[in-house]
Design a protein around this nucleic acid. Structure first.
Length: 555
RNA sequence: GCGCCUGUAGCUCAGCUGGAUAGAGCAACGGACUUCUAAUCCGUAGGCCACAGGUUCGAAUCCUGUCAGGCGCGCCA
């Protein structure tokens, strides 16, 4: 609907210029928007105001000229000039009815677009070290990354979701040591458990498993030999668990990428050589430094340490270089807010290697504040006491957890109250939206019971012009806005836009439901309303599915 | 000290690529089930959009500064 109005406005502007009523043919960026108040019409444009500068005429005057040059259309009831120069369009109800048909036709593709033109985008998220179970923060990152991927795919990009496994380096060794020391304890040896080791209960379990697998003599092994065995076993087990937990959370990755593979394949070494060739690095005090400062970072960064070992940054450079070589035009990393200090150097290294600013983007997800009944849940990673993602999914369910994580902008910290997420009432937004879907499913099944409709094709030939109630037109207007919201969500990479949209659609439907009955004596009207209800059901489902939340037929 | 994020109703937050009279949920108060699911709806009340300047026809939105909160500033990952 917006683009139809936009065309009318543009035509009027062109005509005004051609007939000499406006001095300039230049048309600045203008907007077609839905005004807040009904008295301001269905759609509105600010073209007169934004044109004032180039036309050198008062906005109201421009508006008058434009309106006088607009073609009469039968779906437009009237056009008004208001406020500082807005042109407000009042549409007849009939203007909105075709939207319902479009939704029923497009079905699960309603809202999709080809805006991305098939461009390849990679979204990398979670990427937690396989040294322990995923916690709440990872959950939010997982929900955001997954939803952003879904939304971009829906907007016509070719999306690949990837998990980067930090299976190399010190923390893996620490994991191995942690298991090894616990195993020593199991073998009855008194050892002092080091402070820098992981203290969670799962370490005990892993130690037991290693002991069973390797036999009773294993505890006598030398540290140097045993620790890598422990590390290898523990990391693969934990990774397996992470994968399972994510699947239970509805997240499936297209690719799992191992940091260690960068070493094994010689990729990392190649990158370092490459950096040297390009003179992007220099030696100082025995270390090798990347000239990130030349590309916007606060200072230069070490890639090879004095001891000859590469830094985490080095593998990340190689990894990202490798991403682009795989053909991704754009790369999005989803990170926890505590990593924001890392953005500049990462971006700098990518610029240095010849990529454009817009080809790399970091989504910084702010921290989650876990509450239970309004009180903070005490957590200590150090002591190994924390609520895991699995705990949360087990307690409140996948849908509630995901919906809650995506309810707010990731720019804001999030209060996640387990009690609220568990409640099956109006405090809990997920049910509010899902309930619409279930309610409509109920209506449709009743319609079938009464033989009002015999197959899913009932909408064909329905007389939608019977939908004239204010609540019905309002509902259709909201339905018409879905593609625009998907577009906005994709452009900004903000999934909560979809959340907010779903809440408003659900609210409009509940209001309609309470005011009007769908199945009534009048068969034609019933069919029209059933079509509308079905359209709502489809849009709710499409929106929920972008967020990775199910749309139940019954609740 | 420097950098990033945040500051909007009692609480949790939308709105922020500038637009007209700033919204929702919860909490409070008052109503609506003999109906297709009350996991719902309707109404009332609630605001110096942290503060101070600036930009302009117009600022919650953009810029500068101040204050407050969160996070980060390793040859760790």
């Amino acid at each position: 609907m917006k683009h139809i109005i936009k065309q009318i406005v543009l035509d009027a502007a062109r005509k005004s210029f051609e007939t000499g009523m406006l001095p300039s043919g230049q048309i600045p960026d203008m907007e077609i928007e839905e005004p807040r108040h009904q008295s301001q019409g269905d759609l509105s444009t600010n073209i007169a105001m934004v044109s004032a500068a180039v036309q050198k005429i008062a906005p109201k005057k421009i508006a008058q000229i434009l309106v006088s040059n607009m073609d009469q259309k039968d779906f437009i009831e009237k056009i008004e000039i208001a406020g500082p120069g807005f042109i407000n369009f009042f549409l007849r109800p009939g203007a909105w009815h075709p939207v319902v048909d479009r939704i029923l036709e497009a079905d699960d593709r309603y809202g999709a677009s080809d805006a991305g033109k098939g461009e390849k985008i990679q979204v990398e998220f979670v990427s937690a070290n396989p040294t322990g179970p995923l916690h709440v923060g990872h959950g939010r990152g997982a929900a955001v990354g997954d939803a952003v991927g879904n939304i971009l795919a829906f907007a016509g990009f070719r999306v690949s979701k990837e998990y980067y496994i930090n299976d190399s380096g010190r923390q893996i060794k620490t994991l191995g040591r942690s298991v090894w020391f616990r195993l020593q304890e199991l073998a009855g040896r008194l050892v002092e458990f080091p402070d820098d080791c992981y203290k969670g209960d799962y370490i005990h379990d892993l130690a037991r498993q290693v002991m069973e697998q390797e036999g009773p003599d294993f505890a006598d092994q030398k540290d140097d030999l045993a620790i890598p065995v422990c590390a290898g076993y523990a990391a693969s087990q934990i990774l397996k668990q992470i994968r399972t937990d994510l699947e239970d959370f509805g997240v499936v990755f297209d690719q799992w990428f191992s940091e260690q593979s960068l070493y094994d394949s010689g990729r990392l070494e190649k990158t370092i050589t490459d950096l040297k060739t390009r003179d992007l690095v220099y030696e100082k005090e025995g270390a090798l430094w990347f000239r990130t400062q030349d590309f916007g970072d606060e200072k230069d960064r070490v890639v090879v340490r004095t001891n000859g070992l590469t830094t985490y940054f080095a593998s990340d450079i190689a990894y990202h270089q490798e991403k682009y070589e795989r053909g991704f035009h754009r790369v999005i990393d989803v990170w926890g807010a505590d990593h924001h200090g890392y953005i500049n150097r990462m971006a700098a290294s990518i610029m240095a290697l010849g990529k454009k600013n817009e080809q790399f983007q970091v989504i910084l997800v702010q921290l989650v504040n876990l509450l239970r009944g309004g009180k903070p849940v005490q957590m200590s990673t150090r002591a190994g006491e924390f609520v895991t993602l699995k705990d949360i999914v087990d307690e409140v369910g996948k849908d509630a957890a995901r919906f809650m994580f995506l309810s707010r902008s990731y720019d804001s910290g999030l209060d996640f109250d387990l009690e609220v997420a568990k409640q099956k009432n109006s405090d809990n937004p997920v049910y509010y939206v899902q309930y619409v879907h279930a309610r409509i499913a109920g209506i449709l099944s009743k319609a079938q019971d009464q033989n009002l409709v015999t197959d899913i094709d009932f909408t064909r030939g329905t007389n939608l012009s019977l939908l004239v109630q204010a609540e019905e037109i309002n509902l259709i207007k909201i339905l018409a806005g879905f593609p625009g919201q998907v577009e906005k969500s994709a452009e900004t990479c903000h999934p909560h836009v979809i959340f907010t949209y779903l809440m408003s659609l659900a609210s409009a439907f509940h209001a309609y439901y309470n005011r009007h009955k769908v199945i009534i004596q009048d068969r034609s009207l019933s069919l029209a309303r059933l079509s509308l209800a079905l359209a709502v059901k489809k849009v709710i489902r499409n929106g929920l599915s972008l967020l990775g939340v199910s749309a139940p037929e019954r609740m």
